[in-house]
Structure formats: structure tokens, C-alpha cells
Design a protein around this nucleic acid. Structure first.
Length: 652
RNA sequence: GCCGACGUGGCUCAACUGGCAGAGCAGCUGACUUGUAAUCAGCAGGUUAUCGGUUCAAGUCCGAUCGUCGGCUCCA
């Protein structure tokens, strides 16, 4: 017998060789039905796992990552089986579960069409109905290669497996796939399954390498029941309405022009206003925190990029002006600010007493992104970033990082997105030391500094290996967009290389010239991208202090145009952003329109109100009433001023 | 850059297998002065993304380019 410790420290005894399924069944049939995987002593295992010794078992259902992942992994196998039935010559690549579903990559020398996806989905539902038993078996390397001899990608995967690794297969009906599991027991357990791909399948490189062959990837998702699937699909549709690329254009925040080009958005008056507000906020805040403002050129001669290393490593990513062969001087638009601010540092001699020096700049950058990469305000060829570099001594690094994170956290809170971001500590890859400069001690030490700073901030974060820059570890802050994709909005990078490259020095206590450490950081990220995040976060309904139009005035008839002008002037003089719609007709319509424009306050001006200097105010929160003009002005100003106190209006 | 879908007035969409580019909203002009999803009448607005080809005839078929969207890769 073996002793099994379950949740809440319940201990049960089972015969040796019993499976996890037996454990679940001993509690209830319902639980067994909804157990898709398990953890045995913390290790993810299949429900077919045989108990050999005492252990701790955690049963995983759809509500756990492990259980849901097994559920969707089986869904991916059902997809592959359906494709194999319908397209005999297709070769299988890989098919994992992902956060919102699953995918499978196939090699068929083309994409699947929309119609084919419909057929595949039909076949999948058939497979679910057939309720095929899913079996697991293990093979030796030779037998495994023999079994998969017609699947070149599987052969490659088997050959990539370490010598001692068990090679397991899962079989359902006529379909067999190389897979380490875990999986469900029967295909019928996947009650609700759907393929995503209104335009056919997507392309994806084998092993994610652009030098490899492009495969056809089909995405799908699955749930316990159709109601959950529909809820998911509806939520997706809802989210799409908040898409900054759609909403931002509708609200006239930005536009693009085919003649101007990809990745070069035009900020319209309203969008430019929001960005100006953000920029003023950041520049003021940074000044309060000891930053010195610089304003450096948008381009430089190739000489500088040769020194910085960009000419050798980043040339394809830059817009180059002139011809190296013909011209005496060749310029390039800047893709980063670091060399410029470092040059500012080098223009003076520095003593250890001056450090840390913090430089800030509202910096416009140019990067020649490949044509397929641009997207709305998220990926651009020209963008403006709240850039900054801190030059300090090694022993100051940890405190400086802490201060940077505090600033960033303050910015996040002010924008009301502190709960929507994820922190990531990007470390080097110990197994690939050649990719990085510096030795193990440098890396472990600096990574520890970043870790301490994150712990100090008391935020949750994920550590990821191999995501660091070649010159140092970094902290990335990510925001998930309405499509569920994560983008970095902020990064803080430690750099123990460039100072030497640029020959930056300070004089230490002993009078020696020493290279400082530099920190690359942004406080709000790229303004365009942050605007995109804010549009999606607030569905276009910005907090009052950020609203490009705070009050819309609507006279109910032309008779009140003069009075409206008077009110407009008063509000404007008080620093409130007003827009007047002087057309008296269709007042009801205009109110609706103003509501759609997400204006915080709509004021309707008419006869009754004129007499006692009051106006009818309707806020987007739904409340309405008649207010004294002066009182109304005070109220809005207070709301706007609260930004300074780090408390956004109650809408937050 | 790669795989795929797409591109018709400012916006949303129409135009059967190739056969005269059309409507609603927005805009402008005039009338109406009226408080929450729409007052009436009129006017203007398009070389159907661009260039080329096939055809008696192209928004529609073919090719190239540009742009947009969804993926991949890359990245703030």
C-alpha cells in the first residue's frame, strides 16, 4: 500500500500501482471526470500515473494551469488527427497548449484556407464524438524513429531529445503522436472546441527561426462547455471594440496616411494633446527627482555609430542618409539616445562627488522595422520616448534602480495602470555565456541588485533566463493589449559595458580615472505606445486630467450662442479644455455624439439657466443636474489638480 | 522580411456569373429653435489605394507596388 496525501492534508491509502484516476474516483466520479492532470510531489504528471511510493498528490482540473493545459493539449492532438485524416501528405510539427487555447503547426507547402479550417473543425467534432480512448506508450529510440519515419519533424525532435529522456507516445484511434503529455483519457472529454482563423491558417517558422521553413499554424481553443466558449468569444469581441487602433482613429486621436508611410502615425489635435499632457507630467516629475534635461540631435554622422557599435551591429535597423561609397559624410537618424547623452556627459570632467548624474530627454527615435511588424501605435518607425540615462558608481546602482522603480511605479499609479502591468526580470543565459560581455560575477551581482530593487518595491515579478541585453540584465514592464498580446512598455537596463566603450570616466577619491556604471531607463515608455495602452485601458474614456476635451458646451438654441461664448471663455481662462458645438439643432443627437466622444462633462445651455448663471451639467458617470458656473469650474479644476496629489478622479 | 486575408466619398456599407459607381450618417447652405439614439429641404463629395495588363467593356479577371489587419521573427 502507498500513502497519498491530498489537498488539506487528507491522507488516503491505495494499492501499489493504482493510478491517479483511482485516487480521484475514490473521492467522487465527478471529480474524476474533471481531473485532467495532477502534480505528484510537485511534478506535473498524467492521470495515468502509477503510484509506487508515498507521495503528495494535487489533482488538477480545468481551473488550474496544468489541468487546462492538458485539456488543450489533447485538443491540439484532436486537431492534428483531423488534419491527418483529411490531408494525408501533411507532415506534423508541434502542437502545444497556450494561454488561451492551443495550436498545431503543419507542413503542407501552403496555408489552409478558411473553408478547409471549417472542414477540419467538423472532423474534430466527429473525433470528439467517436470518444476514442487515449493511450500512452513508451518506446526505445530506435523503435521511436522507426515509428515516426514518415514524419521528418518528429524525427528531428526525437534526435534532439537527451540520451536518457523517456520517449513517450500518445495514441487515439489511428492517430499516434510523439508527446510527453499529460493528456486526457478520452476524446469526448473535450466537449467544446473551436478553431480560430477567419482568414485561414497563419504562418510560423519551424522552431521559431526565420531561417527555417514556414509552416501552417492553426489556432484553436477549447472549454469544458459551450457556454464558456461563447463567453470567451463574446469577451474577445467586446475587447476588440476597445482596440486602440480602431478606437484611437474613431476618437480622432491619430490617423495614418499611405503617402507618409508605415509606422508613421499622425497625432491629431486630440491625440497630440494627450501626449503633451503626459510629456509635461513626466518632464516635471523627473525634474523633481533630480533629472537634468537634455535636448540632443536626431541624427549623427556614421563616425559616432561606429564608435557606439551600431554601425557594425544595428545598421539594418537604421535610416541612413547618404551613400557611404559616394559621400564624404554619411548620417543616420538615431535609433537610441544613449550615445548622445553619453557625449553630453563626456563634454565635462566629472568627480565622484557629482554622481549620480541623471539625464532625461523626451527623445524621438527612428528604427527601420521590417514592413510586417508595424502595428497601430504599438510598433512604429518613429516614436518618442521618455528616455533617460543615469551615470553612477557601482555602489550607487542598487539605490538608483530603486529610485527608478519608484518613479515608474508613481507614473503607473498616476495613469491608473499599476494593476495592469507585469514585471519581468530578464537575466542572462548561463549556458550561452559567449553571447554576453562580463563575467559570471558581474552578472550574478547585478541581477541580485535588480532583484533587491524589485523586492523593495513589493511587486510580483517573473525571472526569465536569456532575455537580457548583451551588456547587462534588465527589468521589463509589460502590458497586455486587448488581443491578449503582451508588449513591453517600460524597460530599465543595467549596463556595465558602454561606459568603457565611450570612454566615460569620473575621478574617484584617490584621483584615479574610473569608468562609471550606466542605467538606461524610461519612466513612461514610448508616448505613442503608452497612449495606445491608455486608450484600451480606459476604452477611450480618459481620466479628466488627460481628456483632450474636458467639457463640451451645447447651446440648445442659437439664441444662447453669446451666453455660451461667455461660459466658454470663463472655462478656458480657468485652464479647462472646452469645445463648443454651436449648432443648436438636434441637441439630443449632439449629446449622444458627445457621449460617444467620451467627453467627461457635457453642459447644455438654455434660457432657464441663463437667468441665474447656472448651467445643466451631465457627467459621463451618468449624474446630471444644474450647477453654478463658478462652482462647476472649481469642481473640474479640483479633479484635474488631483493628478498632482497622485489621486486620480474617482473614475479610477 | 516571411505566411495569409483585405483595400469602393470623412465613416458604415451596396453594385447578380465583367455591362452607365449607389445609399445612410457626417459636411456645407437654407428653414425650424425644439433637453437625451437622430427636425425638414437642398447642395457638394469617388480617376473604386497606385501603376500596368487582358477585354468591345474592369470596382469586379491577371500582375506589380503601396497600405491595413491576423500570425511568425524581431522589438519600446
Amino acid at each position: 500500500m502507498v500513502k497519498v496525501t491530498l489537498k488539506d492534508d487528507v491522507v488516503k491509502q491505495f494499492k501499489k500501482g493504482s493510478t491517479i484516476l483511482d485516487v480521484a474516483l475514490s473521492i467522487s466520479e465527478g471529480l474524476a471526470r474533471n481531473t485532467f492532470a495532477c502534480e505528484v510531489n510537485g511534478q506535473l504528471e498524467d492521470v495515468r500515473f502509477k503510484l509506487e511510493s508515498d507521495c503528495k498528490v494535487n489533482l488538477l482540473g480545468f481551473d488550474s494551469d496544468g489541468g487546462r493545459s492538458a485539456f488543450r493539449h489533447t485538443s491540439a492532438h484532436i486537431l492534428a488527427q483531423a488534419v491527418k485524416r483529411l490531408f494525408k501528405d501533411v507532415k506534423l510539427a508541434i502542437g502545444p497548449s497556450i494561454e488561451e487555447g492551443f495550436y498545431y503547426d503543419f507542413d503542407l507547402d501552403r496555408s489552409f484556407t478558411k473553408d478547409e479550417i471549417v472542414l477540419i473543425e467538423k472532423e474534430m467534432k466527429k473525433i470528439v464524438k467517436e470518444n476514442l480512448e487515449i493511450e500512452i506508450f513508451e518506446l526505445g529510440r530506435e523503435e521511436a524513429l522507426e515509428l515516426m519515419k514518415d514524419e521528418p519533424y518528429k524525427v528531428e525532435l526525437i534526435n534532439d531529445l537527451p540520451e536518457d529522456e523517456k520517449i513517450t507516445f500518445y495514441k487515439q484511434g489511428e492517430f499516434v503522436d510523439l508527446c510527453k503529455g499529460p493528456h486526457l483519457l478520452k476524446t469526448k472529454q473535450v466537449k467544446s472546441i473551436k478553431l480560430l482563423g477567419e482568414d485561414g491558417s497563419s504562418g510560423a517558422y519551424w522552431k521559431g527561426d526565420e531561417k527555417n521553413k514556414m509552416l501552417a499554424r492553426i489556432y484553436g481553443t477549447s472549454f469544458l462547455k459551450n457556454a464558456d466558449l461563447n463567453k470567451y468569444l463574446e469577451a474577445k469581441e467586446e475587447a476588440k471594440k476597445r482596440d486602440h487602433n480602431k478606437l484611437g482613429r474613431e476618437l480622432k486621436l491619430f490617423t495614418t496616411s499611405e503617402d507618409i508611410g508605415q509606422g508613421l502615425p499622425l497625432l491629431m489635435p486630440k491625440g497630440a494633446k494627450v501626449i503633451q499632457l503626459l510629456q509635461r507630467f513626466i518632464e516635471d516629475e523627473e525634474e523633481k527627482r533630480g533629472y537634468k534635461l537634455t535636448k540632443t540631435p536626431l541624427m549623427a554622422k556614421s563616425d559616432m555609430y561606429e564608435k557606439s557599435g551600431h554601425w557594425q551591429h544595428y545598421k539594418d535597423g537604421m535610416f541612413i542618409l547618404g551613400d557611404e561609397e559616394k559621400d564624404k559624410e554619411v548620417f543616420a537618424l538615431r535609433p537610441m539616445t544613449c550615445p548622445f547623452q553619453f557625449t553630453v556627459y563626456n563634454a565635462e570632467q566629472h568627480s565622484y562627488k557629482e554622481l549620480p548624474i541623471r539625464y532625461g530627454e523626451t527623445s524621438t527615435l527612428f528604427r527601420k522595422e521590417s514592413s510586417g511588424e508595424m502595428h497601430g501605435l504599438i510598433r512604429l518607425r518613429q516614436f518618442t520616448i521618455s528616455e533617460g540615462h543615469i551615470v553612477c558608481m557601482k555602489e550607487q546602482v542598487e539605490d538608483e534602480i530603486k529610485e527608478v522603480l519608484e518613479l515608474i511605479n508613481f507614473v503607473m499609479e498616476t495613469l491608473g495602470i499599476e494593476k495592469d502591468v507585469k514585471y519581468m526580470l530578464s537575466k542572462w543565459d548561463k549556458t550561452n555565456k559567449g553571447k554576453y560581455i562580463g563575467d559570471e560575477k558581474d552578472w550574478e551581482e547585478t541581477q541580485e541588485m535588480l532583484r533587491n530593487a524589485l523586492n523593495n518595491l513589493e511587486v510580483e515579478y517573473k525571472e526569465v533566463d536569456g532575455e537580457a541585453a548583451f551588456y547587462g540584465p534588465k527589468i521589463d514592464i509589460l502590458f497586455k493589449n486587448v488581443h491578449g498580446k503582451e508588449d513591453t512598455i517600460i524597460t530599465v537596463q543595467l549596463d556595465f559595458a558602454l561606459a568603457e566603450k565611450f570612454d566615460m570616466t569620473y575621478i574617484d577619491k584617490e584621483g584615479n580615472k574610473v569608468h562609471p556604471t550606466t542605467i538606461h531607463r524610461t519612466s513612461l515608455g514610448c508616448y505613442e505606445r503608452t497612449l495606445a495602452m491608455l486608450i484600451e485601458k480606459y476604452a477611450g474614456v480618459f481620466p479628466t486630467w488627460l481628456s483632450p476635451v474636458q467639457v463640451k458646451l451645447l447651446p440648445i438654441s442659437d439664441k444662447y450662442n453669446d451666453y455660451t461664448k461667455e461660459v466658454e471663455k470663463k472655462l478656458k481662462r480657468s485652464g479647462i479644455r472646452v469645445e463648443v458645438d454651436s449648432r443648436a439643432e438636434k441637441t439630443g443627437y449632439k449629446i449622444r455624439e458627445a457621449t460617444l466622444e467620451k467627453v467627461p462633462y457635457i453642459c447644455v445651455l438654455g434660457e432657464k439657466e441663463e437667468k441665474d448663471n447656472t448651467i445643466a451639467v451631465r457627467s459621463r458617470k451618468g449624474d446630471e443636474g444644474t450647477e453654478d458656473v463658478e462652482g462647476f469650474i472649481d469642481r473640474i479644476i479640483k479633479e484635474v489638480v488631483t493628478r498632482e496629489n497622485n489621486i486620480i478622479s474617482e473614475e479610477k
